[in-house]
Write a protein that binds this DNA or RNA. Structure first.
Lengths: 151, 151
DNA sequence: TGACAAAAGTTAGATGTCTAACTATAATGT
DNA sequence: ACATTATAGTTAGACATCTAACTTTTGTCA
């Protein structure tokens, strides 16, 4: 055992992010980065969402999500509106142009999955997901335990 | 299969990096980030190295490595010198103070491994490394093939 | 041998992300 | 009912990293 799993995951993460950026540029979406894709992914599923929901889904902070949505609004893929239930809340919704990109994003996502899983058999793919889930759950539990202790 | 391995690796990467930053601060090394640790790791092994070697080892670009070494030099952990063989080359070496931190870095690195591998059995740890290596090799091969094609 | 290409390193500028601090609104508890 | 606390979102400022362009030195080859 080399105990280099963290380094390997870091490298894989770097390479996939970089590849994704290239794909987005190739799809004519320059200025759009993978995190914007995460924001859009939730909107493709739900049609609309609050900033808070988008931040949680994309695993970014709320300030970062503000910037991401600013950009998406600027290029016309998304529209902000005040929530009617809660005056603090902003509801973000896809524009027609944003909705029209669903297919392109789905295609890129499919290509990414293929790229990562292709060297693995079905069993290996399942095993990898199982192991990664174990590691992630444990990290999150450890983090929560430490946060709780420090409060 | 959920095909979410990329997301899981991204999350694990984020959490480990963040945890590492906290550990470095706790060790009195504020201003030092994980990438500085990668640079130092090679110096702990080899005593000295060129900027080029450090960049390759840390998987960072050379401009980034320049900034990393600037910082390490500024806080006195490292020293630059002109290579005698090649006037273009800079040789970076640990100072006495830098060398004295070897133990602290080793301890943090050990803690990280424990944190990530603890939910896994020995077999699972080995399996995870094997699968990650398969994925990474494939990604690198794909990238090289694409680069070659575009030249 | 002399021109041109490659390599080492740095500088400059851009970008994505974060934390801290702020505003505005809603919820809570006494 | 009102003061306090919590939540939604934004703004401001910092930082790690990248790409592109530049300087200097070395290697190559006609």
């Amino acid at each position: 055992m080399k105990y280099d799993a963290v380094m390997l995951m870091g490298r894989i993460h770097d390479l996939t992010q970089k590849w994704l950026r290239g794909e987005l540029v190739a799809a004519g979406l320059s200025g759009i980065v993978p995190s914007h894709g995460d924001v859009l992914a939730l909107l493709f599923m739900k049609g609309e969402a609050t900033m808070h929901e988008l931040a949680a889904f994309a695993h970014r902070t709320r300030p970062t999500t503000t910037v991401l949505v600013d950009k998406l609004e600027e290029v016309g893929l998304v529209r902000r509106a005040q929530s009617e239930d809660d005056a603090r809340s902003t509801v973000v919704a896809l524009t027609a142009e944003g909705a029209s990109l669903r297919g392109s994003f789905k295609a890129i996502s499919k290509k990414l999955v293929l790229r990562v899983y292709s060297p693995l058999s079905k069993d290996e793919g399942e095993m990898l997901e199982k192991l990664l889930n174990k590691v992630l759950s444990n990290l999150e539990a450890a983090k929560n335990a430490e946060n709780a202790k420090s409060i």
